[in-house]
């Protein structure tokens, strides 16, 4: 197995607007990589490039030595979009069953997997409810459950914990940690600084440029800050 399952070297433009400018990143198995940056900095575009929905204007994304988009590789990835992509007129169970059969979860394992992921996001009680009756946080959790359903090797999560209360957020991060130990690569975008502290490595993006990469400690040391938040502001050119 490759030590760097994901290698990205990308520039993305929409017309004349440059969204991502020469981003070079490699990700390892068994790490949680946190992508930080103000809104509009290009985090979501980067995630979409990595999961193969978007393609780079220049450069490539290689996952498991395959150039993206590649359908076989895509089945080994779990993607959670920033906006909940759910069929609200269906029940949670029907949503899960649909995505499970799309990503080829075996019929015999399906029921068990659905129970597992729903337990993880604390929604087992609400399996047969229609998604339109769900709250924002519940929808977020269901989206996460769907991303985890087929035991992906790579998880791409775009702001997975927005609208989720702190105690459940802790539990979800414990899950990420457990998956990381199993060798899963997890990429999250986040705005929450205590989540950033729990990442193995961080990447700071600003106006489409990667301005810093390193462990949380490295980033703090380099900027002589005591918190990630301060470091972030320092890199952004805002002095406190």
């Amino acid at each position: 197995m490759d030590t760097y399952p994901v290698q990205a070297s990308v520039t993305k433009r929409y017309g004349k607007t440059t969204i991502l400018d020469g981003i070079e990143l490699t990700f390892q198995r068994g790490e949680i990589f946190g992508l930080l940056g103000p809104s509009g900095s290009g985090k979501t575009t980067l995630v979409k490039l990595l999961c193969g929905i978007e393609e780079a204007t220049e450069g490539t994304v290689q996952v498991f030595n395959q150039q993206m988009p590649d359908l076989n590789v895509m089945n080994r990835m779990g993607y959670m979009a920033q906006a909940d992509a759910l069929y609200v007129e269906l029940t949670a169970k029907e949503n899960l069953e649909f995505f499970a059969s799309l990503s080829g979860v075996k019929r015999t394992e399906r029921k068990e997997r659905i129970q597992e992921v729903m337990k993880l996001v604390d929604l087992e009680q609400h399996l047969d409810k229609k998604v339109e009756t769900y709250s924002g946080g519940m929808k977020r959790r269901l989206s996460l459950a769907i991303a985890l359903l087929h035991k992906p090797d790579i998880l791409l999560l775009d702001e997975p914990t927005v609208g989720i209360d702190p105690s459940l957020r802790q539990r979800i991060w414990d899950t990420f940690e457990a998956l990381r130990m199993k060798g899963v690569l997890i990429l999250v975008t986040t705005h929450v600084m205590d989540e950033a502290e729990r990442c193995s490595r961080l990447g700071l993006i600003r106006e489409g440029k990667l301005i810093a990469v390193g462990t949380p400690d490295e980033i703090k040391t380099n900027t002589k800050s005591t918190t990630i938040e301060q470091a972030f502001l320092t890199y952004g050119g805002v002095k406190r």
């Binding site: 979409k48 999961c51 193969g52 929905i53 359908l71 076989n72 895509m74 089945n75 990835m77 993607y79 979009a81 906006a83 909940d84 992509a85 759910l86 069929y87 609200v88 995505f99 799309l102 990503s103 080829g104």
Partner: peptide, 14 residues
């Protein structure tokens, strides 16, 4: 519009 098409296309469906 509800984003499920994008989500579908992130899966291996042809």
């Amino acid at each position: 519009t509800q984003g499920t098409l994008e989500r579908l296309l992130a899966s291996p469906i042809k």
